[in-house]
Each structure stands twice: as C-alpha cells, then as structure tokens.
Design a binder for these strands. Structure first.
Lengths: 317, 317
DNA sequence: CTGAAAGCGCTTACAG
DNA sequence: CTGAAAGCGCTTACAG
C-alpha cells in the first residue's frame, strides 16, 4: 500500500497525495481533497516511516528513555496518554531503556534520527551537548533543580519527624547505589533540618529490601528513640518489619517515614506515614512542553516546576 | 555522516562501503576491508535507519510490546540483555505499550515495518493473523498453553494449602479485571485440587490493594479455618494485614499463599509463603527463539515451555 | 576485485 | 490548481 496506490485510486499524482495527507493541501479543490482522503482510508494507507524520514531528514519517532530506577508510577500511567497525544500529531512514541553510555545514545539518535528525545531523568551535560550537536531536541523533567527537589523531600521528612517528637534522626538509603540516585540530596535535606532544629546530624544506614539487613540496620541505630527518614516505602516497610521483630513500638519507640506512597505502603499495620508524589505530573508537563515547542499546541499553563509533594500521615510517626 | 563520506575517506564506492560494513565483503581485498572499517570508525559513521529500511524493504527495528499488567520483573531485567543482544545483530529493540486495538497494531507495523514483534503476553488470533498478513514475524512467550500454566499455579497453591492442613479454601482475585488476566485459570486450578481432595469448592473474593477491602473480603470468608490462594503477593500482603487487624493467627487460623515472590513479600512478618516464577526466563527463551529463527544463532537448547515455578515456603501457611 | 546505476517510498521545490 | 522530476541515504543486481 504505497502513496502511488492512493494516487491512482484518487486519480491524482503522488505529490498531491503527500501534500493533502499532510495537511498542506490548501491549494487543492475541496473535492480533490475529499477524494484523496477517502482513497487513503479505503486502502488503509500507512505512509512508510522510512520513506518519510528519508525525504524529510528526520523521522517521526520520539524516543522516551526509561531509567533503571524503579519509581512510583507504572509505565502505562506515565506514557499511555502521551503515546496517543503524540500519535495525533503523527508522531510515534517509542520507549527505550536508558542507554548506559553517551556513545550508545549517540548511536541511537544517529541511526533513528528522532524528532525529539524525552527522558524521565535529567540528561547529563555530556548527553545534552551530544544531542544538541546532533540537532535532536531533548526534554527532561527538568525541575528547577533536581537536587533542590530531593533536598526538599528530605526536609519534609525530617520536619515531620521532628514535629512528631523525634529528637534523633536517621536516614535509610538504598544499598545498591545504582538505585539510589536521589539519596544524596535527600540526606542533605534531612541534615539541614536537623541543624535548623539544633539536633545532631542524622546517622545514615544503607540497606536493600531484606529483612536481615533491616534488622541489622535498625540495631545499629540504637533504638528506642529514633526517627527514620527512608529512601522509599519499600525500605520503610522493611524497617517496620524489623521493628516488629525487635518488639519495638511504632511510633513510640521508632518513628518511620517513607517516600512514594505506594499502594502497599498503605496497607501495612500501622499504616505507613509517607510522602505522595505524582510521577505522572512532571512527565505530563514534559510532554506538554514538548508539544508546545513543536508549535502545534498552546504552551502549557501550569508551572513546570511545581513540587507536587503531599505528606500522607499514617500511623508510623 | 553518510556512507558517501566513508567511501571518500576510504577511497572506494558507496556500494563497497555498504557491502563491507554489512559483512558481505568477502570479495574485497583484506586491505580494502580494513580501510573501510577504519574510515567508518574514524568518522563515527551511523548508517541511516531510514535509508537502510527503504532499500531493504524492512527496518532494523524489533518491537517489544509491554502489557498493561504489572508483573514481577522490572523492564531492565527483562529487556536489558535483549537490547544488547539484538544490537549485536544490528537490530534496534524498541518498547511500545501494548496497543489497545488490532487496528492500532496494524498502523504501527504498517509504518515501522519492523523486522519482528515480540509480546510479553500471547497475541490474540486476530493479531496473529494481521501480523502474518503483513509479513511481520511475531513472537510471544507462547507457553504450551497459557491457560494450562495458570491452572498449574492454582493447583500448586491449593495443594500446598491442603498439605498444610487447610480443609476450606478460598481464592482471592483482583477486583480490577484488566489486571486479572490470569485469575480465571488459577481459580480453576484451585477448584480442581479441592475436588481431588474431596473438599468443597473454594469461595472466591475480589479485591484491590486496599486494607478496607481486604478486611471485608476476609470477613466474608468466615474465618477462622480458611486457606487463601491469592492472585499475587500484594493481595496476599493485604490479607495478611487484614488478619492482623482482626487478630486472627496466621497460619493457625488463616493460611495465606501468594504468587510472584516479590521482594516485599519476603519481609512481611511472618514471611509470606508464595511461588517464585522467573519472568525473565520465558522472555529470554522468546528472544533466543527469535534470534535462532533469524538464523544467526544456534537454536536455544532449553525447552521453551518449562514451567519454572518454585514454592517458597514462608510462615503464612 | 571494483564501481556506476537503479530503485526503495516519500516530500518538496518547480514548471506548467 | 495540478503533475513531473529530483533527491533523501542506503543496498543490490549488474557491468566491467
């Protein structure tokens, strides 16, 4: 099914088909336009992505890079809508696992010639420079300052723990450094609040989702009398189990606050205190941003940098 | 950076560059081959995907369809290795959210002309037929019988509960039918084992990851004295919390078995009894299968249909 | 053993 | 208002 077939059925040239189907057909008569569109529909014509890309110098692909990190929302929530919005603009959203090296990213965009590339995590300077050099538009959640954002999360956790009476804080980070990209910023946020409140610097423990590790980590913090700001809800849940094993009362002897507000975090006993953060929001902003840059949609109205954090007070603080 | 640049630098024609870089350059002298390869490296030459696709009639893309369902493994585990294996064959693996309609699938393959399409869930007959008609190779985990597989899981859960002394069984499925594609088969597996053991048919409850629902569901099963086979570990964890809220002893008064062996399921108190299933295995099989069909790799040795289920006995049964 | 030419399906100036 | 032609970057018969 090529454009020639459509042209023949509609009784026009291939050029006309192209113009009309791409919305640049003002100069054709209404009846011609109608005929061509019907022919395309009739034949279920799908323009060849390769043909278009070659002629236009860049493909209709938009690449979304998926980071290694696990994160709150599931892909469907994040990219389901975007896939369709972009399809309406004639663009094809494809997902790729985040490349490990900048060189690999170069190969990817070199061969695909995507219209744009989106990333759920900020691009490095090196990547950004490469993409610019190759003329590929790059978009990332691009918070005012990613680091600032993580600090804010840490501060929020710490403030809440302190409000609830903790006088000794700790930070529980992930053992696997690859999964812990935000740990540093959050730790600093907690430290800041400790100082502001005149408390000692927080102890820091690293652990995975593992009960033995959690018990060891908890022991090392010398409970009772500790408030723990956790990297995520999974870690918080582990520590909650560890407290139960050590027969420590939560929140009286050990306070715990998580991050993400995962579904499971809300079914623990007691229910976990955590911070809810809508991952889909910044992504939606990113997509809206991208579409507006394409000039095909009005600019997004909401501020891109809003920190949509909500404290969910449960029974662990 | 086009093949012409490489040709010029190496002092050969574009055709020669193409042949040599694609491994069909036996007929050229070793020194020519060397020169061309060096020139390509030197210029960091990336063949245009569009150019290749147009000339060859099909692109180098391999599409992997990601289902809506949440499932055990994370994407990185499942597709990280595959991305690289395919890259070695010159193929580009891209991920797409599973299309909602067969028509959308048709548009996708129509425009992308992928070399093959993989799906984590079996293709429907309609989809399979469409893909065949379009000449796109389709691969799915393609278990001996998907349904058979789910039955086996249900049976395994039920047998274990019965072994452990449960004389009254129940099945806990997901409330959201879209997330519950395997529920029916598993329920039947449980029912089968009940009959075989001379027990009454299992009660069936539907719930989401929600504590209130879990408590209500548990109440409706008239504990104590019930063994519950759960759709997944999240549901099992919910019910475990519900039992705690109702002060029911686990496993003495309520037995619970999950499915998936998620990390969090192994840090509950008591630790959840569940079934571990390596999602990456069938996917690896699928990829190996695909590569062998490409004729570029020896056929996979392992049986594709092995049911890699392992009972993980914890403290809830 | 190597190069020149045609063609893949599309779009876009350009000529009528 | 419409069509014929050139060109996008590649591969593949084919001619030398």
């Amino acid at each position: 099914m090529k454009s020639e077939d459509v042209a023949r059925l509609a009784g026009v040239s291939r050029g006309a088909v192209s113009q009309i189907l791409n919305g640049r057909g003002e100069r054709f008569s209404a009846s011609t336009i109608e005929r061509v569109k019907e022919a395309a529909l009739e034949l279920d014509y799908q323009p060849s992505a390769a043909g278009r890309a070659l002629a236009m110098g860049s493909s209709d692909f938009v690449i979304a890079l998926i980071p290694n990190t696990t994160f709150g929302g599931n892909l469907q929530d994040i990219f389901g809508a975007a896939t369709e919005q972009l399809a309406e603009q004639g663009l094809t959203l494809v997902l790729r696992l985040a490349t490990t090296t900048t060189a690999a990213l170069g190969r990817l965009v070199g061969s695909m010639a995507p219209r744009a590339i989106l990333s759920l995590t900020p691009f490095s300077d090196e990547e950004r420079e490469l993409l610019e050099r190759r003329g590929v538009r790059a978009f990332d959640p691009h918070l005012a300052s990613e680091d600032q954002f993580d600090r804010e999360i840490g501060r929020l956790q710490a403030r809440h723990l302190i409000e609830r009476g903790s006088t000794r804080l700790a930070v529980a980070r992930l053992q696997d450094a690859r999964q812990d990209p935000f740990g540093q910023g959050r730790e600093e946020g907690v430290r800041e609040e400790c100082r502001r409140a005149g408390l000692a610097d927080p102890d820091v423990v690293h652990l995975g989702v593992d009960l033995e590790q959690a018990v060891a980590a908890l022991d090392s913090l010398n409970p009772p009398g500790i408030g723990i700001a956790c990297y995520n809800d999974d870690i918080a849940t582990c520590l909650l189990s560890a407290a139960s094993i050590r027969s420590l009362e939560v929140p009286e002897q050990v306070s715990i606050i998580g991050m993400d507000c995962t579904p499971l975090s809300q079914v623990t006993v007691p229910r976990l205190t955590t911070i809810s953060y809508d991952v889909t929001a910044p992504t939606k902003n990113m997509i809206a941003n991208f579409l507006s840059v394409l000039g095909e949609t009005p600019a997004p109205d909401g501020p891109v940098n809003a920190l949509e954090l909500e404290l969910m007070v449960g029974g662990t603080t």
